[in-house]
Amino acid sequence: MRIGFRQIGVIAAKEFWDRIRNRWVFAVAAVFTAFALAIAYFGAAQQGGIGFKGIDVTIASLVSLVIYLVPLIALILGFDAIVGERERGSLDLLLSMPMTRLELLLGKFAGLSAALAFSTLAGFGLVGLLLSYQLDLGGLYHYFEFTLSAILMGMAFLSIAILISVAAADRARAGGLAIAVWFFFVLVYDLVLLGMLVGSGGRIGSGIFPILLLLNPADVFRIFNIFGMAEVKTLYGLATVFPPTLAEPWLLGSVMVLWIGVPLAVATWRFK
């Protein structure tokens, strides 16, 4: 059966405009702008100075902020996409339309992704514009790469959120599950890996460790942004545990795309 792009578009447009109307997009954009500004100008205050200290340090600080914020925002954005319709009582009606379940899922995902991407671009874009007169082209490119990768990471967690919204029995459970997923990938995962590394005296370092890092979209995002920067790479100690061959942008990009595609595919399979 051919995919109905019109139906996907209708669902996506509704999701996107819903987020514009309830000011979600503007609220998130404002939060990103505020944080990015604060980090860009006051990020070095601990080291005894204020003012812009260069793009690499700024991005490094932004990465550690965004890695908490974006997954949380994406999970909250998407966790009730399907279960919310089910609980409201509008799912049956939607499913009685000339639209497949796959199209409904893709429409939801596309619309929510657009809302997330729009607010991320607007928030960080505004700050990028303010920084642009202090940056060279390379710096701007870095900043752009950072914004793009933040969006991709957001989409990966959004994809997981959609899967949660399909699998969960009710909205409350979906919410709990979303918070648990955030907790696991953003807070627990790295700690466990670190514990393994230290506990084994570094023996598992070379082989399996980098692979384990790729199994977390948040870590993929971190590696993508930090590895390219000589100044901060050593600071994070990444060079010692992560081989440069695996840090190729195209490879990290592909892993992220997988992180977007696989949960959605599982969600489609579960949603019958």
Partner: peptide
């Protein structure tokens, strides 16, 4: 089946306790 889109377009459905979007 195959004709699902065609059939869906030619029917109307009012579910029990229908709910819409409040906003």
């Amino acid at each position: 089946g195959e004709a699902f889109r065609q059939i869906r377009r030619s029917i109307g459905y009012l579910p029990e306790n229908v709910a819409f979007y409040d906003h």
